[in-house]
Computed example of a mutant assay.
Amino acid sequence: LVDIPVAYDGADLAAVAGHLRIGIEEVIARHTSTLWRVAFVGFAPGFPYLVGAGTDLRVPRHRQPRVSVPAGSVALADEYCGIYPRVSPGGWQLIGVTTSTVWDPTRADPALLTPGTRVRFVVAGQ
């Protein structure tokens, strides 16, 4: 089980809450109370596609992807949660950012999160 601290201040957090018709605090509560599992890794080296049983955080991708998403961005799209391992384009809904390094080619195991890994998101600083 890997704990990932998140500062829930993402550019799309309010829009996600609006889409789901819940408050921002409820988005955070649902995200942090879900036990996530890495289903697969792709898009970019170390980018985990996480699934969470029973979560109700399904939101659409942006119609027009951003040109640049900051590394460490925690995002939602459809049934998945992901963490951007490096600066890259992306169309997911940004809900926060983590200081955890999910891809580091200098480590013996570059990917922090591999298929099957369980992940728990926690509010940074708590």
Rank of each mutant, 00 (worst) to 15 (best):
D3K: 14
D3A: 13
I4D: 04
P5A: 01
V6G: 01
A7E: 11
A11T: 15
A11K: 15
A11F: 06
A15T: 15
A15E: 15
A15Y: 06
V16T: 14
H19Q: 15
R21N: 15
R21A: 12
I22N: 13
I22L: 12
I22R: 10
G23T: 14
G23I: 09
E25R: 13
E25D: 10
E26W: 08
V27E: 14
V27D: 09
I28K: 14
I28Y: 05
A29P: 04
A29L: 10
A29D: 09
A29N: 09
A29F: 15
R30V: 11
H31C: 13
H31K: 13
S33R: 14
S33H: 14
T34M: 09
L35M: 07
L35E: 08
L35V: 09
W36Q: 14
W36F: 08
R37I: 12
V38T: 08
V38Q: 00
F40N: 07
F40A: 02
F43T: 00
F43E: 00
F43Y: 15
F43Q: 01
F43H: 09
P45V: 09
P45H: 01
F47G: 01
Y49S: 02
Y49P: 02
G54P: 03
T55S: 08
R58K: 07
V59W: 08
R61M: 03
Q64Y: 03
Q64I: 13
Q64E: 12
P65G: 07
R66Q: 09
R66D: 02
V67P: 01
V67W: 02
S68H: 10
V69F: 00
P70Y: 02
P70D: 06
P70F: 01
P70W: 04
S73Q: 05
V74F: 09
A75H: 03
L76A: 12
A77T: 11
A77I: 07
G82S: 14
P85Q: 03
V87R: 05
S88K: 03
G91V: 01
G91N: 03
W92P: 01
Q93C: 05
Q93Y: 10
L94S: 05
L94T: 04
G96C: 04
T98I: 05
T99G: 14
T99P: 11
T99A: 14
W103D: 10
D104S: 04
T106I: 03
A108R: 13
D109V: 11
D109P: 00
P110I: 11
T114C: 08
G116K: 02
T117I: 09
T117S: 14
R118D: 11
V119K: 13
R120E: 15
R120Y: 11
R120Q: 11
V122M: 12
G125A: 15
Q126G: 12
Q126T: 12
